Structure formats: C-alpha cells, structure tokens
Amino acid sequence: MTAPLPPALARTDLGLGTRYEGKVRDTYDAGDGRLVLVTTDRISAFDHVLRQAIPLKGQVLNSVAAYFFERTADVAPNHVLAVPDPNVTVGVRCDALPVEFVVRGYLAGHAWRVYREGGRELCGEPLPDGLREGDRLPRPILTPATKAVQGHDEDVSRLEIVARGLVDADTLGRAADLAFAVFDRGTQIAAERGLILVDTKYEFGRAPDGRLLLIDEVHTPDSSRYYYADTYEERLRAGRPQRQLSKEFVREWLMEHGFRGLDGQTLPDLPPEFVRDVSARYVELYETVTGQAFEPDLSPDPEGRIRAALGGVAGAG
C-alpha cells in the first residue's frame, strides 16, 4: 500500500451509554436491547494490547466478520442487526458465554507449542504421536479457553467447564455443535479461495429470547489462521513454515524481539514501517478470503464518521 494511511482509530468515546473496552472492540450498551460494537485499530498478541494501532485493521476485521456472519447464518444464527459503518456492527445484546470455543483442524500455533514441548493432550483432547507442525489432525477438535479480561486466557476441557459451573452441559453441547458447523462452512469457503482454515475461535451468547447466537467475530485474521493450499503439501514435506494469512507474523516479530507475554518481559514498540506492513497484510487477507477488492474509508476523522453513521442511535449525536 503506497498511499498515505488514514489516522488509526485507537479508541472511541461515543457517549452511547455503558462503554466496555476490550482488547480490540469498544462496545456500547445503550440499554435498548442492542449493542454497538466498534472494531478499533488496536492489535493484541500474547494477550497484550500493543501500544501502536494499525490503520485500516478495524475496517478489515469488521468487514471480514460481516462477510462470514452472512455466509454462515444458515448454520448458526448470529447477533448481527446492521453494519452501518466500516468499523461498526450493531447486534443483539446477549449474555456472553464465559468460554471461547477454539476449533482446530491442524497442529499449529499454541497447539503446536504445547505438542513440541511434549504435550499429547490439549483441553482433554488426545493428540497422536508423530505429528509435525502444520499436520492435519485426524479430525477437528474443540480446545476451549476461558476468556480473560486481563492476562492470559486459560485452556480448559469440556469436563472442567461443566464442573466449574461456567456453562451447563446442554448449552455447552449445543454451542460446540454450532462451532463445528461454522468451522465446516468456513473450511468450505476457504477452499473456494485456495486457502485452508487451520484454526479459529468462536464466541456465543444467549439472546433475551433464549436463542444461542454466534457473536463477536467470525473467521477474521484476529480469530483465525489460514494456510495457502497450493503450497501446503510441498512445504509440509520439506519441513518448511507454511505460508499463512493470520496475525501470527506479528507474534513472530514480537518473539524475535524478545517478547512472549511472560512476566518481566518488555513489550516492544512496532516501528512505522512494520505498522504499514501489518496494515497491508490485513488488507491482503480481506481480499484473499473474500475475493473482493478492499475499498477503505480514508476519512481523516473516523470517529466523526462513525457518529454520523450512528445518527439514528439514541445518544450518538
């Protein structure tokens, strides 16, 4: 991307009632049964929010999520009511389940690091001997994690989820079924685009009418990892790293600069040229996974633009 980047949207203050700041999203509850979710340009890795925001990242994430929410709605109902701005989704206010539903089809990322260190079980799911990084698993597995507001998420098995009273067994089973169904659809869509959906995480919430809805995001570069299918087998045989679309390259950059999110480590600053590269790679992911050209909104006042788009929401003006 050679054109100047727009200002990064690092934080919003829209005055829409109760505001909650997550790692990436600013969520507003105006008290009318809807949530306004603003996907900012903040970026997190190893459960830490980096000091530098990535211009256009929020637009990419929100747009990719909107694309996949629409294409998976027939297999898993979701919370989306409207997408009035590139950075904004208006959704049904749900009581979120306190667990992330991580589905893995391949041995990569956190699962590979556990396996490499000798682990042969993850969240109660056995992992066979003899696997290499990037190998396809015998079947997709569910490796849930508790959601931490601060600090690290915690791996947890289905049995532990029920035993700790986090989610009842019936709800857990239905959410797991939905997660596998959406993963299967995502796998099909990825294959159409010459990609392999490696792993991803889903979140679910209960709507006021009792429905279990897919919420937050789906199949975005922040929540998912993709490999390029055309070079997968060749690189696997050669023991070479896979070409992938995800934010793993940000984690790798941090690790190269001495940061893994461990106590006592200093979070490094991202240099401007790397920020630009990260922005370009997010755009690349959007265009690759959707097959559509990315048309960014380059407004010099992204928060003002969002306020105008939300003019019909009480308190936004």
Rank of each mutant, 00 (worst) to 15 (best):
residue 23 K to N: 03
residue 253 W to Q: 01
residue 15 G to W: 12
residue 233 E to P: 10
residue 47 D to L: 05
residue 139 R to S: 01
residue 106 Y to N: 02
residue 93 R to A: 05
residue 13 D to S: 12
residue 79 H to S: 05
residue 72 T to L: 05
residue 124 G to E: 11
residue 10 A to Y: 09
residue 203 E to W: 14
residue 302 P to L: 10
residue 183 F to Q: 04
residue 196 I to G: 05
residue 298 L to H: 00
residue 136 R to G: 07
residue 109 G to F: 12
residue 296 P to C: 01
residue 122 L to R: 08
residue 92 V to W: 11
residue 302 P to A: 06
residue 204 F to D: 01
residue 298 L to M: 02
residue 107 L to A: 01
residue 261 G to S: 08
residue 214 L to H: 04
residue 103 V to M: 07
residue 196 I to H: 08
residue 189 I to Y: 05
residue 154 E to Q: 15
residue 22 G to K: 14
residue 197 L to H: 03
residue 23 K to E: 02
residue 313 V to R: 03
residue 203 E to V: 15
residue 12 T to S: 07
residue 269 D to S: 11
residue 179 A to L: 13
residue 273 E to A: 00
residue 196 I to R: 13
residue 317 G to T: 15
residue 229 A to N: 07
residue 143 T to F: 07
residue 201 K to A: 04
residue 172 L to K: 10
residue 173 G to P: 11
residue 198 V to P: 01
residue 111 A to V: 15
residue 257 H to E: 04
residue 117 E to G: 11
residue 98 P to Q: 06
residue 33 G to S: 11
residue 215 I to Y: 02
residue 161 I to N: 04
residue 170 D to T: 15
residue 159 L to K: 13
residue 195 L to G: 03
residue 239 G to T: 15
residue 262 L to E: 08
residue 265 Q to N: 06
residue 254 L to D: 06
residue 230 D to V: 14
residue 226 Y to D: 00
residue 300 P to D: 01
residue 143 T to Y: 10
residue 137 L to H: 06
residue 186 G to H: 13
residue 298 L to P: 00
residue 79 H to Q: 03
residue 58 G to N: 06
residue 92 V to Y: 08
residue 220 T to A: 02
residue 174 R to C: 05
residue 254 L to C: 04
residue 314 A to I: 14
residue 180 F to Y: 12
residue 267 L to V: 07
residue 6 P to K: 00
residue 40 T to F: 10
residue 212 L to N: 09
residue 216 D to H: 09
residue 18 T to A: 10
residue 199 D to Q: 09
residue 136 R to I: 15
residue 282 Y to S: 00
residue 240 R to A: 07
residue 28 Y to T: 03
residue 126 P to E: 02
residue 126 P to M: 11
residue 109 G to H: 10
residue 223 S to A: 05
residue 94 C to N: 05
residue 203 E to L: 14
residue 69 F to I: 15
residue 79 H to A: 09
residue 211 R to I: 02
residue 159 L to I: 01
residue 262 L to M: 10
residue 314 A to P: 09
residue 217 E to H: 11
residue 192 E to L: 05
residue 139 R to F: 02
residue 272 P to K: 02
residue 166 L to D: 01
residue 263 D to S: 10
residue 190 A to H: 06
residue 66 A to Q: 09
residue 38 V to C: 06
residue 26 D to K: 14
residue 66 A to D: 06
residue 87 N to F: 05
residue 7 P to W: 03
residue 298 L to S: 00
residue 11 R to C: 07
residue 112 W to P: 02
residue 49 V to E: 01
residue 236 L to R: 07
residue 10 A to W: 13
residue 158 R to Y: 03
residue 289 V to F: 02
residue 75 V to K: 07
residue 232 Y to N: 04
residue 289 V to W: 03
residue 43 I to Q: 04
residue 82 A to K: 12
residue 36 V to T: 10
residue 115 Y to W: 07
residue 230 D to Y: 13
residue 153 D to S: 09
residue 267 L to D: 00
residue 150 Q to W: 06
residue 246 S to N: 06
residue 285 L to C: 03
residue 191 A to Y: 09
residue 20 Y to I: 15
residue 129 D to K: 15
residue 144 P to C: 06
residue 262 L to K: 13
residue 42 R to Y: 05
residue 222 D to P: 11
residue 292 Q to E: 07
residue 169 A to H: 05
residue 53 A to Y: 08
residue 178 L to K: 14
